[in-house]
Amino acid sequence: MRVLVADDQDLFRGGFAMILGAHEDISVVGEASDGAEAIAKAVELAPDLVLMDIRMPNVDGVAATAEICRRTSAKVLVLTMYDVDDYVYDALRAGASGFLLKDVRRDDLVRAVRLVAAGESLLAPSVTRRLIEDVVRRGSPRPSLRRRLAELTDREVDTLRGLARGLSNSEIAAELVVSEHTVKTHVSNVLTKLHLRDRAQAVVFAYESGLVVAGTD
Rank of each mutant, 00 (worst) to 15 (best):
R147A: 15
A150Q: 14
C69S: 11
L196G: 11
L194C: 08
D134W: 11
R130W: 02
V5N: 01
A150P: 00
S168W: 08
Q9Y: 14
L109F: 06
L131V: 07
I39M: 13
F205L: 10
V183P: 01
V113M: 12
T80D: 03
A174Q: 14
L152W: 02
E67G: 10
V76E: 05
D158C: 02
E67W: 07
L49E: 09
E156G: 09
D53R: 01
S126D: 13
L160F: 11
L196E: 11
L145G: 10
S33V: 03
A206D: 04
I26N: 08
V5P: 05
D60C: 05
S209W: 02
A22H: 06
G162F: 07
L122P: 12
G30F: 03
F99L: 11
A64W: 02
G15Q: 05
V5H: 05
V157T: 15
V116K: 12
C69W: 01
D48V: 06
I132C: 14
R137T: 13
A94T: 03
V28H: 08
K41T: 01
A94Y: 06
E171C: 04
R129W: 14
V116M: 08
S168M: 11
F205Q: 08
A42Y: 05
A17K: 03
R2D: 08
V157D: 12
D158F: 03
S126N: 11
P47T: 06
E31Q: 15
A164L: 06
V59K: 12
V127N: 04
D198Y: 12
Y89M: 10
A91D: 06
D108C: 07
S27Y: 00
T192I: 06
A6C: 05
D25W: 10
V116T: 09
I68T: 10
S140I: 06
A206Q: 08
N58Q: 15
E151K: 15
I39Y: 08
G215N: 11
G215I: 13
D83Y: 01
D48K: 13
L211Q: 07
R71L: 14
T192P: 01
M52N: 08
A96M: 02
G98V: 08
Q201R: 13
R106E: 13
E37V: 11
T182M: 09
V190I: 04
V50W: 04
V183W: 11
L92Y: 12
S27G: 03
L123V: 13
R138V: 02
E31K: 12
H181K: 13
A22L: 05
I68A: 10
L77I: 02
L176P: 07
I26V: 14
S209I: 09
R197W: 01
L167Q: 13
V110C: 04
V177G: 06
L115N: 14
L196N: 11
V187D: 03
V110P: 08
A66D: 06
H181S: 12
L51P: 01
D34W: 01
D83A: 11
G95I: 03
V29F: 03
L77G: 09
V84K: 15
R138E: 00
E133R: 13
R13C: 00
A124Q: 13
V29P: 04
L176K: 12
D103G: 15
A150M: 04
